[in-house]
Design a protein around this nucleic acid. Sequence first.
DNA 1: ATGGCTATGCGACAAATTGTCTCATGCGGA
DNA 2: TCCGCATGAGACAATTTGTCGCATAGCCAT
Lengths: 186, 186
Amino acid sequence: MIEPALTDSSEYPSLLIVDDDEVFCGVLSKALTKRGFSITCAHTIEEALSLAETATPEYAIVDLKLSSESGLVLVEKLRNLDPGTRIVMLTGYASIATAVEAIKLGATHYLAKPVDADEIMAAFERTVGEANIPISAHPLSVGRLEWEYIQRILTENDNNISVTARILNMHRRTLQRKLAKRPLRE
Amino acid sequence: MIEPALTDSSEYPSLLIVDDDEVFCGVLSKALTKRGFSITCAHTIEEALSLAETATPEYAIVDLKLSSESGLVLVEKLRNLDPGTRIVMLTGYASIATAVEAIKLGATHYLAKPVDADEIMAAFERTVGEANIPISAHPLSVGRLEWEYIQRILTENDNNISVTARILNMHRRTLQRKLAKRPLRE
DNA sequence: ATGGCTATGCGACAAATTGTCTCATGCGGA
DNA sequence: TCCGCATGAGACAATTTGTCGCATAGCCAT
């Protein structure tokens, strides 16, 4: 066992998670610790930077939307601190424009939520030239992805089915039906 | 008038358009000539490469979906020929996954069709960091989310449709159809 | 209280999408 | 050359969605 105090010099690679959603940080933190990383969490850009200046992390997971600011600037700064840092940008509000910018700023990869820990792992390993190392991540089925996504948007909107349906650009009747037959395994 | 043979030494910057749609090439060619470029068109990767080997263009516009092959490999090759070439990737089948790949391979920018000549011009000029990208306020529609996800798994698996369909737990026929369709906006 | 506005649940039927099957073609390895 | 696997595509049935309609219910301002 390694003593928790020595995270810096730990034999585990250091990984900084930056996301303003504390619950999300917690869940991810736990999942990645189990996979052998030494995790630190930050909820704002300032916090992330002061942590990174003390000890630059080897890996970072940055949310695009950090309260009001853009996680993009953080990507740039982390890279300036240490060009070797591997950064995955994560977001619930994905767009091609921000993806392009993130990669240009030096992010290793860009993923839209929902994602699971394995997919993030795979993203860190990934290099340009196609699928060299077949990572055994087990991605969600499309059905499952849709279900998770719907649940998130629904929650964000007070469980208002009509509003959610409009946002998701689907018919209220359809959403009703999808929600009705909820037991979706896979 | 400049003699066509001397495109290299022309006073106009050289620009190579690679798209299998001849009509599109023609229109774009005309619009960009008017803006002061010396245009050459190619409709296949081979054609593009042989042209580029003779005289490497200063700018290039590459379509992602070139009949059977992917324009991504062309981006890589053009870059190897001359790292200074500024390349804009263009496509009617835009996705975050391919955008990420394109930028990693060295593309200057990535735009979704339909697009006008001015946007392409702006894309060539774009520099990192400057742009102040707005974070989209609204989440993706379910349809779009599915499209992005499919594209991601597909690129992660070397564009193997059969494998992707199995991973996603959907029928190959269905995946075929979804990929064929989708000039999806939203 | 009454009318205007919106959310919700659900039946019914048409329209669109998927699931299945089947073929023919093309490619790389045994 | 045969085998296994990927792919594109046609055809038809099985499901799922899109649409309408209607009734109920909560909010809120008149």
